[in-house]
Amino acid sequence: MIESPVALPAENQTPRRLRITVLRYNPAVPEQLPRLQTYELDEAVGMTLFIALGEIRETQDPSLQFDFVCRAGICGSCAMVINGRPGLACRTLTTQLPETIALAPLPGFALIGDLSVDTGKWMRAMSERVESWLHSHDVEVDLDRAEARMEPELAEAIYELDRCIECGCCVAACGTARMREDFVGAVAVNKLARFRLDPRDQRDDADYYEVIGDDDGIFGCMTLLACDDVCPKNLPLMTQLAYMRRKMAAVGWRGSDGANHS
């Protein structure tokens, strides 16, 4: 995890005065041009950006837009660009940042207003594109039958990749995604890696190739690894990207018949 470069403010110290500059724009009010607005407030002990923004909205500017739901790094809705890098506002302590903080909405997603973006729309389109759900040829599912057993290690491995909260940080951090908006992004590749592990997903590598086997998919990734560096859930994105790249390259050289779960 990120080491705090600044010492935690002790109770008896005079708190730092934070200057938070927000890139503001509301697409619904296009006559108001994008602008940088700076708010000042005193740093409190254990303050996160979520707390700071909440305080600003409550005491200074009720019109400031930003998203929060869980405040605990679980829902993925508070991702924004913090001093140039994407991150979760609710998981970012102000002590980790200098006194001047620049906030901007996550690029690459539809802007709702100020710091609020619609990652949901993008994520849904991505899910539909790579079909990130279990594909089973069994037409009928017997609901009375006990579920098939799974080795705990395998369940663990699947769960590890399933921890993605679809915050969009990896996409916003990816230079490839910025340049080429059709690039699937690490989040999609990670999802397919997750389904590839899952024996209940009956797709084979040739099927996965159909959805990510091109230059907008895994072969578009230029291994800049910013995704791996910013993912707030510390998902092993570098490993998964390399893994899927090897599998998809194998399909490309071998022909059509990809054996499943090899």
Binding site: G84, R85, G175, R178, M179, M222, L224, A226
Partner: peptide
Amino acid sequence: QYRLFMSHRAAMRHEDTSLW
């Protein structure tokens, strides 16, 4: 695309992105 990448690089200050 060039401009998008360069502004992205400047904001990110990320080694592997810059090395690209």
